[in-house]
Design a protein around this nucleic acid. Structure first.
Lengths: 252, 252
DNA sequence: CGGTCCCTTGACAGCCGTCAACTACCGTGG
DNA sequence: CCACGGTAGTTGACGGCTGTCAAGGGACCG
């Protein structure tokens, strides 16, 4: 992933919720500059039952939250893209109840507990935004529940692609109608509760209806409206529309 | 539901995480005494797209978070039992992205924003516990993702019953091997992503293997170990084991 | 150039959904 | 007292969406 992260990306994400002042932005830059590390695809950033020491912020690449159940079945519960936080829960929950694994080469900032605590204490608007981020993550998780429970394979994949496209656009990683898409069909299968074979067939169906172009790790959505339509996608659960306006108050 | 709630139940739930002092408990009693209201089964406590005014705390009865998608399919994303909070997100997110509906007659405390804010400011341990509660809810949501994505109907229902049993026990609503279970087969279907007919058949299978006794709104689990086994259930995601020990510090 | 990963395709099977009818239960009202 | 309607649970027949198995192809890489 060549998209090097400069702290600006994280600010961009959080300002989807609230307006950040210059000092807020400085604080975020502090966070994302902290101890940058790198892992290769297929390595884990965090393993189940471990107790993470700090908070990890994705800078580039893709990762997934996943669990493997006894007989080897894997379920991906979330995708993590640049700007996402892996484990803010470190302050409260003792052990991880799932793993986080790199799907591509990943770089991330490994932020010390104290740094996060300092920033959250000193910059209330940043603290609010981090909380918002956490709540949106939960909301996404609920939407995945619907996706898996009540949508067909065709709808499920269309829906997931809608979501990922908007999330990537939110951090400036979608360019017009296209975005990077390093997921393999096996990854998509494990996220949508399908088999890899069926994902393959479903993608072909989506392609044949000109809803997507998916080739060489790039996704093109020629008509987002149409894709949204067949997916039954409603973006309200992403809470993207500057909901923190009421906090802007004495800004500028 | 005859189980009248006295504020003690909520404290009981939160003390699964951290030890609460006498003043903490008083604060919780203040919360659950606030404006008690009641709704009948099938009525909504909160509707999608509304902006809730306060925070709702379940006192008795069962409710569900759900969404209905265009063609009428319903998905239940969570069950709410006494001690659960419906909408703590009210401080951050503007609109509800889903509805909360009563499955039985429900009584709840309708807590004013200011009251919650006051309690969270003055009683940091309570604030921690509320945050823990929120994170556990998210963790449960992830587990539901796995349930729907990678488990068979048989495992799914067994797993859900394991979870509900432990959650009810956590608030003192399970008695030895049994607990109340007012869910209809249609409710179970909408929570597990199955059809009501298939839920019926699956329950019969669970019964015939002596894993459960389900009759007259009561669930008996004669051998929890065995049920856990067939479900592939691991309770770690409920984070029940006094994880807040490290916060006990200067207590007693 | 052999190996690995990923994608693709076909045949077949099975889990689970749909449809429809029937039973049981319960509270209401005539 | 019994008819009645509504909700919940049960059962059977049938079909389809999706999984499994297996084989092959293409791209990339050491």
């Amino acid at each position: 992933m060549d998209n090097l992260f400069d702290g600006e990306l994280f600010a961009r994400k959080l300002s989807q919720f609230t307006r950040l002042g210059p000092t807020d932005r400085q604080a975020l830059t502090m966070l994302s500059g902290d101890r940058v590390r790198r892992v290769r695809a297929r390595d884990d950033l965090i393993r189940e039952n471990e107790r993470p020491t700090g908070v990890k912020l994705m800078l580039s690449g893709w990762a997934s939250r996943y669990k493997i159940i006894e007989d080897g079945r894997r379920q991906i519960m979330a995708f993590l893209v640049p700007g996402d936080i892996c484990d803010l829960n470190v302050f409260i929950l003792r052990d991880m109840d799932h793993s986080v694994g790199a799907l591509t080469t990943v770089t991330f900032a490994d932020i010390a507990r104290e740094t996060i605590e300092f920033v959250m204490d000193e910059f209330p608007r940043v603290a609010q935004a981090l909380l918002w981020d956490q709540l949106v993550a939960h909301s996404i998780q609920r939407e995945w529940t619907i996706n898996l429970g009540r949508r067909s394979a065709f709808e499920r994949i269309a829906h997931l692609l809608c979501e990922l496209f908007l999330r990537l656009r939110g951090v400036g990683l979608a360019d017009g109608q296209s975005c990077g898409m390093p997921l393999t069909q096996a990854d998509l299968a494990d996220a949508t509760g399908l088999s890899a074979v069926h994902v393959n067939r479903t993608l072909q169906e989506l392609r044949s209806q000109n809803l997507i172009v998916l080739r060489g790790r790039e996704l093109v959505v020629p008509d987002f409206e149409a894709l949204q339509q067949v997916a039954g996608f409603n973006r309200n659960y992403l809470h993207l529309d500057r909901e923190g306006r009421h906090l802007d108050a004495n800004d500028v």
